[in-house]
């Protein structure tokens, strides 16, 4: 079983991202489960969402404490909270940031990748300059980095699950797929 945790702020669409990821994995024949942080969500407050995937039926119905990989929709969260809590060794941390992945000082047992999802979202008219909607773009980057799910499945799931601007969201996914940079991932 692979467990993925997505960090964002209330309103950024972390929950939708977890659902789109689950839908994409399901299309590829995986068994899936996704859920938000159980509790109240407030706009701007740190939130997390989760996705489980497995080749066999998922029967675990408890929260995720030791994820395999992370996505971080807002890089300021890295200062605000310990996003790496429980993350397994060698786990990927895919961060929405215009910085080079080398600029993040996180423990070396993790692998870092970055993609400027803000810029990509703005370019595709997703959200506003101050509040870009980056949840779809980050999935494109995640697909490239982890190779757990194909970009085609992600794009198809985005079109299926995201009610507004499905084409723009799909294009943002593809662009992030191309532009993401991480250890061993070169253009």
């Amino acid at each position: 079983m692979i467990e993925i945790r997505i960090h964002g702020r209330g309103g950024q669409g972390a929950v939708v991202a977890s659902q789109v990821l689950a839908a994409a994995l399901f299309q590829e024949g995986k068994c899936v489960q996704s859920f938000p942080t159980f509790g109240v969500e407030r706009r701007g407050a740190p939130v997390a969402a989760f996705t489980r995937m497995d080749d066999r039926e998922i029967r675990l119905r408890c929260e995720i404490y030791e994820p395999d990989h992370l996505m971080v929709l807002d890089p300021t969260l890295i200062e605000a909270i310990d996003v790496t809590t429980g993350l397994k060794e060698n786990g990927w941390i895919v961060i929405n940031s215009d910085k080079h992945f080398g600029e993040f000082h996180l423990p070396s047992k993790f692998r870092i990748a970055t993609v400027d999802a803000n810029a990509i979202a703005v370019k595709h008219n997703l959200g506003t300059r101050t509040a870009p909607i980056v949840n779809t773009a980050i999935l494109g980057a995640f697909s490239r980095i982890t190779e757990l799910v194909s970009i085609e499945a992600i794009v198809a799931a985005v079109k299926e699950e995201v009610p507004l601007n499905p084409e723009e969201n799909a294009a943002a996914c593809r662009e992030a797929y191309e532009k993401v940079r991480g250890q061993n991932i070169t253009p």
Binding site: G10, R42, G44, A45
Partner: peptide, 12 residues
């Protein structure tokens, strides 16, 4: 109190 919860950081 809830003063530990610095909600100002959520502001746009």
């Amino acid at each position: 109190s809830m003063r530990w919860n610095k909600t100002g950081s959520w502001r746009y």
